[in-house]
Design a binder for these strands. Structure first.
Length: 406
DNA sequence: TCTGGGGTCCTAGGACCC
DNA sequence: TCTGGGGTCCTAGGACCC
């Protein structure tokens, strides 16, 4: 029996998320061009987009394009709460939800026909529920594959709903300009334009080997498959995160070594706190730098063991900063970031015990605390080191730990 | 027109191993 | 002394996404 594939993937995406939350919470902003973020535009309402304002744009340019627009400071706590409410509706709507960001997700509604109706009916009710319960406009694309659903919601914005029928996929796909394709940015679009490729249809005319020679194996193969309408149809389970990072643009006043070190400490503290509260530890410490001419550089170091300890990460970050000092002085630093990657599969945490030998109670309560955080069958590894300093040194070098206890 | 902060994945070269 | 073929891991940079 031939069973035709049906368009059962929904891509739901809140329009101008941050700006929509602001307009929802502040009546005065409704119907007005609204720009979130002063230095850089984090989000622009559709009224502001009509003036040419875009996300990622410099604040000065945005104000020039749209002087009557309201510029508001971001309220991240409100966005997190809105996102939580949004995903509550998503989770109620479909058994499989793949979140892509705070404000968008794929929903797989296969097999819900008899319970909830057709995909297009489900999509309509989803839009209504988000509008009524969360107070935000959401656009939904419905198609047979994730990629098509994502492109459909992009084409239907704002506040729209678009179904790509199975027998209309190529008609929808091929006229799309390549720079609208998910995964094609400025650099890839330029390379393709230089070779006379402007639409997905023109992309589909080229052989895979041609695209691979232009874009490299991964991008070339991926784009060739997408242009020819080959895309895995099922939403994927979200993988665990692979890094924690924090970065901060520097005020012009931050130039002295002490001031720079203070920034570094704050960044490392922020990152390691988040790691510890997520029960994760990592081995590769990366320092990200941005210079006066907006060029970037990174320096990284991989430790022999995973850690989430502030002092250890800080020592590594300081070493990396020191190694890049000449470069920094030459080119002028405008942004510094710290990222910890190479996260182990296991969660981890370190506890400190008294230097003059832990008594039985102290050891027991430490073990209890670890088991409380990671489960009764957690493997507890004991590292015998003399002092915090030498623990850090141990993690930074490959030397065996000192024999003395702590 | 010079701009934030958070991520993911890919590429290429080098060191090193069997 | 030079050379095959198969790997892994690390570092640095780049493209892209929201």
């Amino acid at each position: 029996v031939f069973v035709p594939a049906e368009p059962t993937i929904l891509h739901a995406d809140v329009d101008s998320f941050f700006a929509s939350v602001e307009q929802r919470d502040h009546r005065g902003l409704r119907g007005r061009p609204t720009i979130v973020g002063g230095g850089v535009v984090l989000a622009a309402s559709y009224e502001a987009k009509a003036y040419g304002v875009e996300g990622g744009m410099g604040g000065r340019k945005a104000r020039r394009l749209c002087p009557q627009g309201a510029v508001v400071e971001p309220r991240f706590a409100a966005y997190m709460e809105a996102s939580r409410a949004l995903f509550e509706v998503f989770d109620r709507t479909a058994p499989i939800v793949e979140g892509l960001s705070l404000e968008e997700a794929f929903l797989d509604v296969r097999g819900l026909e008899r319970i909830s109706g057709s995909p297009i009916e489900i999509a309509g009710r989803l839009r209504q529920a988000v509008r009524e319960e969360v107070g935000l406009p959401v656009t939904v694309g419905v198609a047979r594959t994730r990629f098509l659903a994502k492109m459909a919601s992009g084409a239907a914005k704002p506040d729209g709903l678009l179904l790509v029928p199975c027998d209309g996929e190529l008609e929808f796909l091929h006229p799309l300009p390549i720079d609208r394709v998910w995964g094609v940015g400025a650099s890839t679009a330029e390379k393709l334009h230089r070779r006379g490729i402007a639409t997905v249809g023109q992309l589909a005319e080229r052989s895979e080997s041609t695209l691979v020679s232009i874009l490299g194996p991964a991008s070339g193969r991926r784009l060739h498959a997408l242009a020819n309408n080959r895309d895995p149809p099922r939403p994927r389970a979200r993988r665990r995160r692979r890094s924690f990072g924090s970065q901060s643009a520097l005020h012009p006043a931050v130039r002295s070594p002490d001031a720079l070190d203070a920034v570094l400490i704050a960044l490392v503290d922020r990152v390691t706190r988040r790691m510890r509260s997520s029960g994760r530890a990592g081995r590769t410490v990366m320092l990200r730098l941005r210079f006066g001419d907006f060029s970037r550089a990174s320096r990284s170091r991989t430790l022999p063991r995973s850690t989430a300890a502030t002092r250890t990460i800080l020592i590594a970050a300081r070493l990396l900063l020191e190694a890049a000092l000449a470069e920094i002085q030459r080119r002028g630093l405008t942004l510094v970031g710290v990222t910890v990657a190479n996260l182990g599969d296991g969660a981890g945490a370190q506890l400190e015990l008294p230097v003059d030998g832990p008594d039985g109670d102290a050891l027991d309560s430490a073990l209890d605390e670890l088991r409380g955080r990671f489960g009764a069958d957690a493997v507890v590894r004991a590292a015998t080191v003399a002092r915090r300093e030498s623990l850090s040194a141990w993690l930074l070098s490959s030397d065996p730990p000192s024999k003395r206890r702590s």
